[in-house]
């Protein structure tokens, strides 16, 4: 680890570990806060409440970390004599380790609360694994599968974050504005015509059948989902590299 890649990895993990600690703390405090709220309001309103945001937190953490880390790390590591390639590979590795640490930490926190509450409390605590695959899964195997799913989700979204960051880095002002306006508009107004097309045309119905088959494959096992997310993450990072290779490294504005 005494190569420039190794040093870059140490630098990046050193930066991320503080953010990971803060996230662990927040995730540890959210459940007691929700329990307090549920017990405070419970007598008069809801009898039970649920919190299933653990995997989501890992994913959002990965996305944000991926977005902000790319340019910042390329800048500071270039200033310290590290090539783009080594900085980028170190970032991929550091984001993977961060996703694993965050997923493991949040799974331990969630498992601890689930064990304490024993399913009897007014607060149901779960993550994406329990929501999609096994609502009652509290065994070690289920927690490990849930942690693995959260980790690959976090890493995949970190890859998406890096791709978005690299894309905005390379695009000029016109395309940046166009992309920023077009994507939300397409998401808002494109879904209805798309669903209409999928239900009313033979080609659309074929696409719908393919998507349904894909959904069945993903829902068959959490490992299927994990493998697909892993592949998506790898694709995002692979597409980021050619964008990054010739980007101008300049001071932040």
């Amino acid at each position: 680890m005494n190569t420039r890649f190794g040093r870059a990895f140490r630098y990046e993990i050193g930066n991320y570990i503080r953010a990971i600690g803060v996230l662990w703390l927040v995730m540890a405090l959210i459940s007691p806060a929700m329990m307090a709220l549920a017990y405070f309001l419970g007598g008069r309103t809801a009898s039970t409440t649920s919190f299933n945001g653990y995997s989501l937190a890992v994913g959002v953490f990965g996305l944000v970390l991926g977005m902000v880390s790319l340019r910042e790390n390329q800048r500071v590591l270039n200033q310290n004599g590290v090539s783009r390639r080594s900085a980028f590979l170190a970032d991929i590795a550091a984001l993977a380790v961060s996703a694993v640490l965050v997923a493991a930490g949040t799974t331990v926190i969630m498992g601890t609360y689930r064990a304490i509450l024993g399913g009897e409390g007014r607060v149901l605590i779960s993550d994406i694994y329990q929501v999609l695959y096994k609502t009652s899964g509290s065994g070690l195997g289920d927690l490990a599968r849930g942690a693995a799913l959260s980790a690959v989700l976090g890493w995949m979204l970190a890859g998406l974050g890096q791709l978005c960051s690299a894309l905005y880095w390379r695009l000029n002002k016109f395309w940046t504005v166009l992309l920023s306006v077009a994507v939300p508009l397409a998401l808002c107004f494109g879904s209805v015509p798309l669903l209409d097309w999928m239900s009313s045309t033979p080609a659309g119905q074929a696409v719908a059948r393919a998507l349904a088959a894909c959904g069945r494959f993903l829902m068959a096992s959490s490992w299927n989902m994990s493998a697909v997310l892993l592949a998506m993450g790898a694709v995002f990072f692979a597409v980021t590299w050619p964008l990054l290779r010739r980007a101008n490294i300049r001071a932040a504005k």
Binding site: R4, E72, R75, V76, Q79, G81, V82, S83
Partner: peptide, 23 residues
């Protein structure tokens, strides 16, 4: 010059600040 071996032998003290804002 784009590799680690070459870049590790150079240091550019330029007018651009490439360090993070909070460093």
């Amino acid at each position: 010059a784009e590799g680690d071996a070459a870049l590790g032998k150079l240091f550019l003290a330029g007018d651009a600040n490439l360090y993070p804002d909070d460093m």
